[in-house]
Design a protein around this nucleic acid. Structure first.
Length: 318
DNA sequence: GACTCGTGGAA
DNA sequence: TTTCCAAGAGT
């Protein structure tokens, strides 16, 4: 286990005091790796994007769809998507509006637009092959720190810290001894995740998938099944008596009455329509004209909706 | 860092 | 019924 420097600029006077995170010693790592990886070997779900035939493109599509959306709702859309667009170039060859339509009700439809844009970039810049390099993945539209690491790790077997909400929760409990991680990912969490990463590349990739799956199936947000947990004996949170979360409340998301709800209703009309939609059809989805106009303007600004010269609207052709 | 951005199922 | 929350990214 190599100690990773946590700063790139070495001379730094008055380094900030770090939170008292339990040291991720080599002993801690080796203690956790085997149980979690062995558990994964037995309990991993048979998800289509984990099968060899999915390939890097399948992995990437699944990662886009799974951003803030549960597996159960992604499954059918994923299958249709890969059947229709088996390669990035297939998707890039169609208008972005078709991606938005096929996205259906997965939510956050800008992800569909970004996946289409990513497919175009892959086609143009990478010869139609999903890049392997983390930096090149990160440069694609809609690919952030998590997704770049996930594709590099799951599709190409590389060694990366894959920090999603599941992994963050597992580490918060097992190592840091708290019920929930902070609202936003911190530098301390990244340090911890990197320190816990197995040295061996393929082991690291399995560790990433295994910790994620553990968080999804056992170490869940609401009612974790600690009796089924392979590392219950090592869990700092359990050892501390499963103390309740303290600190600021985790942000709830109100939805009713927001612009997001209005945008969703507007876009739903356009997804179902086979021809451009007249203004009146959009006016019918929301009573309040100011908010309705703001939502529609936002959709146009985002490139999710295309206004026509005759006053009608449609999903974007370009 | 704080916000915004959809949707629907489960507790 | 209301609340929570689900493999985040971009601004």
């Amino acid at each position: 286990m190599t100690a990773t420097p946590d700063t790139t600029a070495m001379p730094r006077p008055a380094a900030p005091v770090r939170a008292a995170v339990p040291a991720a010693t080599p002993q801690t790592s080796t203690l956790l790796h085997a149980p979690v990886i062995d558990w994964f070997a037995v309990h991993a779900r048979d998800l289509p994007w984990r099968r060899p035939e999915a390939g890097p493109w399948g992995v990437m599509v699944s990662e886009f769809m799974l951003q803030q959306t549960p597996v159960s709702r992604v499954l059918p859309v994923y299958e249709e998507w890969l059947a229709r667009w088996p390669r990035p170039a297939d998707l890039a060859a169609e208008p972005p509006g078709e991606a938005v339509r096929a996205w259906g009700r997965l939510g956050y439809p800008r992800r569909a637009l970004r996946l289409h844009a990513a497919a175009s970039a892959i086609t143009e810049r990478h010869g139609g092959e999903v890049p392997q390099d983390h930096a090149r993945l990160l440069a694609l539209p809609g690919v952030g720190e998590y997704t770049a690491a996930a594709v590099a790790s799951f599709a190409y077997g590389q060694r990366h810290a894959v920090l999603d909400t599941n992994v963050r929760r597992v580490l918060a409990r097992a190592v840091s001894g708290v019920q929930y991680p902070p609202n936003a990912t911190t530098a301390a969490e990244r340090r911890l995740a990197r320190a816990l990463l197995p040295e061996d590349e393929s082991t690291a990739a399995r560790w990433a998938a295994a910790t994620m799956e553990l968080g999804a199936l056992v170490c869940t947000a609401r009612t974790p099944s600690c009796t089924r947990c392979p590392i219950a004996a090592e869990c700092a949170w359990l050892a501390a008596g499963s103390p309740a979360h303290d600190g600021p409340p985790r942000r709830g998301q109100t939805y009713a009455g927001t612009d997001r709800q209005v945008r969703g209703k507007l876009l739903a009309v356009l997804r179902e329509a086979v021809a451009p939609v007249p203004q009146a059809a959009l006016d019918a989805v929301w009573h309040e004209p100011v908010q309705r106009a703001r939502a529609l303007d936002g959709l146009v600004a985002d490139g999710l909706v295309e206004p026509l010269a005759d006053g009608r609207y449609r999903l974007p052709l370009t």
